[in-house]
Design a protein around this nucleic acid. Structure first.
Lengths: 111, 111
DNA sequence: TGATATACATTGACAGGCGAGGTATATAGA
DNA sequence: TCTATATACCTCGCCTGTCAATGTATATCA
């Protein structure tokens, strides 16, 4: 990822889960979507992306299947699972808390 | 750190710089302050903290000196440098952008 | 024919977080 | 007096996530 790369470490998974919560998708597309939505601010590197897919699938948060494209490069599609949706909700809640916490840590003056 | 540990990776430095922007401080105190301000949500581990101090000092963003306590354990104080203040400003700006980006990635629906 | 876009995947280096361990001083209580 | 607890410092080595580099294959367009 670019820009605040390290900050978002660990939220890669959440971002992917969120994209999959719209509809099944595949690596290349998710990577483009993320660039688009973040207006170029965040670029998920392929290595990072595919590592995350493996991690998420192992954890049972997503599952994958090969698309039946008759033309062009084959695509491995990913779908979010029930557990994945739960995780997404948790992560989003955690993100809200993190924002509040960080804002306090970065702005608030100490007693 | 607890909770969103991984997310804050890389922002450890920023949090420390912010604390030092109030006044010179030392490891143990900063760690307590962070717990206090974040209401226990974020606990900076000592290993993390001292690693960060080394990193920041090497980078010229802070400097250190021994306190002249005549009683109790000795303290190594840290002070933020001019470069550190600049870095802090940049990081805070980056944080604001990151929030916007993440909110878009986690909430906004794709086209 | 060669460049570019689509689409997948792995390997190995690197960096940051942190558990576990260690040192030393001061104080309060049993 | 001895022990526990708080204050205060520090390092080693493991683990995990990111990512540059590299490799594969298909389709399109100049």
């Amino acid at each position: 990822m670019a820009l605040s790369a390290d900050l978002l470490r660990g939220y890669t998974d959440t971002i992917i889960l969120r994209q999959l919560s719209h509809a099944d998708s595949y690596g290349y597309r998710i990577s483009k979507q993320v660039s688009l939505i973040s207006q170029g601010g965040l670029e998920m590197k392929e290595a990072t992306l595919y590592t995350a897919f493996r991690r998420l699938e192992t954890a049972g948060l997503i599952r994958s299947y090969w698309g039946d494209e008759t033309t062009g490069a084959r695509r491995r599609y990913y779908a979010i699972t029930e557990a994945g949706l739960e995780k997404l909700n948790q992560d989003c809640a955690a993100w809200e808390e993190t924002k509040i916490m960080m804002d306090r840590l970065l702005k608030e003056d100490v007693e």
